[in-house]
């Protein structure tokens, strides 16, 4: 199980990479593994507003449909269109090619509600 060091995480297994008021969002290696082969992702539209821990996108695997929540509030700037063609990118490369969307952060204070890689690692151990 890989946990990328430089990212922040949520309890719902999303990650966020914050750079200069903008951030990239995806799901963790643990999450992709738990979901199994992802067959479809319903991407949001650029311009949509999202709230911290609010519903963001939904992904489907063969036998499950799951919601993914936004780690922070903001406005969606761009989505990873490659996922329309190949949603399996999330499975193959959850921290890089499988990124989901980039947002403009509206409240950087919200960072304090997130976990560091180390904290997330401990969290995963605690949930077994």
């Amino acid at each position: 199980m890989e946990i990328a060091e430089h990212l922040l995480y949520t309890k719902e297994h999303e990650w966020i990479n914050i750079e200069d008021g903008e951030a990239t969002i995806g799901i963790s290696d643990y999450a992709q593994e738990a979901l199994g082969d992802i067959t479809f992702i319903e991407l949001p539209n650029a311009g949509d507003e999202v709230e911290q821990f609010g519903e963001f996108v939904s992904v489907e695997s063969v036998k499950a449909a799951s919601d993914i929540f936004s780690p922070m509030s903001g406005e969606i700037i761009v989505v990873n269109e490659d996922l329309n063609e190949d949603p399996g990118l999330i499975n193959k490369s959850p921290y890089e090619k499988g990124w989901i969307a980039r947002i403009r952060i509206s409240d950087s204070e919200e960072q304090s509600n997130l976990m560091t890689a180390e904290e997330y690692g401990k969290f995963l151990e605690s949930v077994g």
Partner: peptide, 13 residues
């Protein structure tokens, strides 16, 4: 196929 749309998986959604 595409069973993730159906009631036995998505229930109220």
């Amino acid at each position: 196929t595409l069973q993730a749309r159906e009631q036995h998986i998505r229930r109220e959604k």
